[in-house]
Simulated assay, not measured.
Amino acid sequence: MLSEQATPVVRATLPAVGGALDEITERFYAGMFAAHPELLRDLFNRGNQATGEQRKALAGSIAAFAGALLENPCTRPDVMLSRIAHKHASLGVTSEQYKVVHEHLFAAIVSVLGEAVTPEVAQAWDEVYWPMANALIALEARLYEERGVAEGQVWQELEIAGRHEETPDTVSFSLRHPDGLPLTAFRPGQYVSVQVELPDGARQIRQYSLSAAPGRPEWRITVKRADGDPAGEVSSWLHAHGRVGDRVGVSVPFGDLVLPEGDGPLLLASAGIGATPMLAMLDHLGRTGSTRPVTVVHADRSPAAHAHREELRRLVDALPQGTLHLWYEEPGTADAHSGRADVTALELPAGLTAYLCGPLPFMRAVRGDLLAAGVAPADVHYEVFGPDLWLGTAA
């Protein structure tokens, strides 16, 4: 909660700070990485830094949090914070690193805004940063405790037990403990981080959804090869070098896009590689004998590009009240629609809970259609691979 003294200062300076956030965050990352190059080498995603997506996500989260404090001073945007906390925990972020961020972020603010950053302004924005940081530290501490690990100690070495070429640019990997120990429990829809050592010595990290149900002796991730360097450096490495018997660093599972308990109707809508968390959810529903109504929507470029296509069909067919609706950009497929996915063409049951995963334009379009159809915003959940550029707008 902002103090009475800070509230008018933040309100008055939010337009200036918000308008300069892109430049502020650019200078912030440049300064922090100059002082701590190991953070870029071994923690932050170099691909997202190169494209600017991480900078945009940070700016969006700061602006959204500050706006939320002003609009609802007695509440916290916990949905947004939970999403960030799960991502941070999957990377092994520690509380000490928030002090490093504070130092370089406020140096960047002063660098960009100059004399406008009076002691009163600096103090007011401290009241934005530290409540957000402390809330995240507390949430991440709870996540570490729930996983039974010390702060930041999320990593384990797992062995690749199986490799399967799903499409020309998508490979699934089965993972197990080299010593046969059971794997950590997880909830359908969660993800793990995978860390690989690249030729330049960097240990880069990417997140991948667990694409099969909990309770199996092995985990499975499905990796689509991304184009470009550094954007695709981890997926390309796994495609080129990940072989049965090799070992990789893998975090314990995290993620807040998980199936709810109960028997209410579900909509699982995905596009491209966004199908992976939905596969785990469907697999779990089938293995537990669920009879709840499940409407599955998937969009892809073509049947050949659709990873796990036949598996998706089998999983939906195994559900007593499961229905599958496919859309492909390539026309002429007998069992699918052509063009973009259109949930308005479907009969959606009342009271459904929707889960979305895929490219941001796909999720925006589906969410908009669902809201127009009367689905409550609180009942539409989503997962984003990479920085969440939707923070504060869809939660």
Rank of each mutant, 00 (worst) to 15 (best):
D300Q: 00
T94L: 07
D179V: 11
A350K: 13
L391H: 09
A304Q: 06
A116F: 02
R340D: 10
A138W: 05
E4I: 02
E329A: 13
R142T: 13
E53D: 15
F106W: 06
E310N: 06
H284G: 04
A240N: 11
A50L: 06
V296C: 07
R55D: 03
G262L: 10
L143D: 07
L279S: 07
P15Q: 09
L198P: 05
C74T: 14
A376W: 05
L81N: 01
D300G: 01
L183M: 07
L319K: 05
Q153N: 09
L391S: 14
L158C: 08
G264W: 07
S302Q: 00
D42M: 05
G152S: 04
D369K: 12
S82T: 14
L326V: 03
Y355P: 02
A35S: 13
L69S: 08
R225V: 15
H241C: 08
R220F: 04
T184F: 05
T288G: 09
G272L: 06
L136E: 05
N48A: 14
N72Y: 10
F28G: 02
Y129W: 11
E23I: 02
P214V: 03
A50Y: 12
D300N: 05
V297L: 15
D200Y: 08
A341S: 08
L158Y: 09
P359T: 05
E166L: 00
D22H: 12
L315H: 06
G31H: 12
E157V: 12
D388Y: 02
D263A: 15
L360E: 15
R340F: 15
T344E: 15
L43P: 00
E115M: 07
G31V: 06
D369H: 14
E166N: 02
H36Q: 12
L391Y: 01
L279A: 08
L268Q: 04
L324R: 11
R147G: 04
G339L: 06
A122H: 12
D369V: 04
L14S: 05
K99C: 00
K87E: 06
A12G: 02
P188H: 09
A59W: 02
L81I: 11
R147N: 10
V112M: 03
A376S: 14
A133H: 04
G148P: 04
F254W: 04
E140F: 08
G264V: 06
V9H: 01
A66Q: 04
L326P: 02
V296R: 03
L238D: 01
G189T: 06
L319Y: 07
A122I: 02
R76G: 03
S82A: 14
G392Y: 03
A116I: 09
E127W: 12
T353M: 07
V384S: 08
A275Y: 00
A395Q: 15
E53G: 00
G189S: 11
T7E: 13
W130I: 08
Y144G: 01
M281V: 08
C357M: 12
G31T: 10
E329F: 01
V110E: 13
D22A: 13
E233G: 00
H337F: 12
G52A: 11
V250W: 01
